[in-house]
Amino acid sequence: MGRTWQDMEAFEAFLDDGGIVEVDDHMPDEYRHAVFTFIEMHANSEYMGGLTERDWIPKTPGLRHKMSVLAKTQDEIGHGHLLYMVAADMGIKTRTEMIEDLMAGRSRFHNVFHYKAETWGDQVAIAFLVDAAALASQQAVFKNCSYGPYRRILKRIISEEGFHMRLGEDRMRRIAEGTQIQKDIFQGALDRWFWPALQLFGPDSKPDDKLLRWHIKSERNEVLRDKWVQKFVPMMHSYGFVVPASDLAYDEDTKKWDVGPIDWEPLKKTLAQGGPDSARRIREARDNWEATAWARRCLDGAAV
């Protein structure tokens, strides 16, 4: 059965050697809680993201896009499902407790799902900017993650998110090559989503960040954020859009873009469920959960 470590020092030495922790190992409580909290937030974000995507199924323009939105909804909900299973296995909360905490506003989900997607342009911006940011941070976890069950699930999730990225680029290209009205709609969406997407990476990692020390994450927030900026600023320019950062500057020496100072207040608000659309999002998720209780009862019955 599971392995045991004498103390935290021995456990950390095991992790530093590239050791992979499995579910039945006797891992230190702090590690168990850190991994659990991380996966729970990821699961909540997939679930809330799936509900956002679902809102757009009836409103999506064209059959091809509608199929992709339908499939993406199922993907996100499926990812949430897998992640809740892996999180529940850690023995801290059951899946039902996690869902109840989410519906009661007691647990966290990613900042980007605390904003309203106003137009189809917003959906395109989300698929293009936000999914890329989420993918970059998931890749940094997957690369070296010390918790085996999460690492294996992430590999599948990342491949699927990579597919969403291609869909996002396809949607973006279509709107960018469209009429002036379409371009204006997309510019408006970029203005709304650029900063939340950038804030998704979080403030600079602290020197004693436990997620880094225990090889749960393998890259510092500021490094990931910078990579994203270096990729997306030139891409937005190449399609003729304006990057909504008044202090945006290009450093000729380092050949890098700098977006200037970042205001972290909006991120803090979303983490305390005080984002512009937090209350409605949580309320609708709860209404949806209650309205579909009959289906879960039927499935439970059918499984006997």
């Binding site: 199922q74 499926g78 299973m85 699927e160």
Partner: peptide, 10 residues
């Protein structure tokens, strides 16, 4: 029976 895609279960 519902995974991340119509062609996959959990």
């Amino acid at each position: 029976m519902f995974g991340p895609s119509r062609c996959r279960g959990i």
